[in-house]
Nucleic acid binder design. Sequence first.
DNA 1: CTTCATTGTGCAACTTGTTGCATAATGAAG
DNA 2: CTTCATTATGCAACAAGTTGCACAATGAAG
Lengths: 189, 189
Amino acid sequence: MSLPHAILTALLEKPSSGLELTRRFDRSIGYFWSATHQQIYRELGKLEKAGLIRALPADSPTRGQRKEYEVLPSGRAELERWVEGRDEPRDPRDPLLLRLRATGVVGVGDGLISELRRHRELHAARLAEYREFQQRDAARGHGTERDRVHGLVLQGGIDLELFWVNWLDKAIDGLDRPEPAEQACGPTT
Amino acid sequence: MSLPHAILTALLEKPSSGLELTRRFDRSIGYFWSATHQQIYRELGKLEKAGLIRALPADSPTRGQRKEYEVLPSGRAELERWVEGRDEPRDPRDPLLLRLRATGVVGVGDGLISELRRHRELHAARLAEYREFQQRDAARGHGTERDRVHGLVLQGGIDLELFWVNWLDKAIDGLDRPEPAEQACGPTT
DNA sequence: CTTCATTGTGCAACTTGTTGCATAATGAAG
DNA sequence: CTTCATTATGCAACAAGTTGCACAATGAAG
């Protein structure tokens, strides 16, 4: 039940068309809640039918025509209600942890190790990207509440990527050398 | 495509019935990949039909009767294949981050702050639980590869909960006091 | 002015995950 | 021996998310 609210948030930040939303989901919001354009179009349709958003009057109402949406008061109310509610934490559901665990019974192979390395690099890249955002935001100053909230969310993204990079390093190291002995040699990379 | 492989892993660790699997999912594996009993039964049926597992011969094949499964060679092969493959990292998809972000446009309310606190405590509790597991495992020594792998996975769980607790502390603190000024007063808790 | 790539919108089918309920065996209480 | 709670298995309907494709407008190349 999060996608519609993610869309309401995005539309409140700036009225947009379906494809625009899709692009914005690829950036900021999508970093912790991705969505395909099909999901977004479908959800826009539902939200419009539910009277939470409306399409801005356009020239022609035909298909393949750009259609911009804005949030109606009832949509904002619904978002406020949802934000103030309660909701249990979800479990991580990351297949990589499962795959690592499976090596406990089928044995560790090279494929998984290189996969761990690959993921490490992907997370490191994303971490670098987030840190650029952070620096850019810090330069522009952050007076408004919205800026501070975005800063906290971004910090969450950074900390999460940090977790991944650090843990993957531990895991790669732990699988590479079977014995946790006191070999003081440097890393193989 | 992870649930069937999670089940194969669990069954290789120990042949079990549907309900037993459900219970084991509530513990170890379920901490990063939960599943309801219905999902598990359905998946067991599919795996059996696909010839990856088989039911151990039991007294009566009727309904409501305990039915234990074990993994067949083809099932183990499938698991090995899956472990060695590649797979992109998923995004976190946590509604709490979305909700926080939404406060950027609808404003911060008390509901969300207490929700952040509540989640902080839940994550802290889980963290404590994991650390108990870790101490217990350390006491029993960890010679086999499987023990080391489980240790790494558990470490992942611990680090992830640590991330949540620390980040939620930051977020609660950042929302409580609008200005990031140098007030040196202690925490309100 | 036709062909073709690009941008944008959308349907339909499928897979995955959730919820609610039905059924069967079992053993204990009345 | 009937009633009832418990344990265990499972169906069916739904909700959420993914994939593949179709269709419409637009503008540039031939």
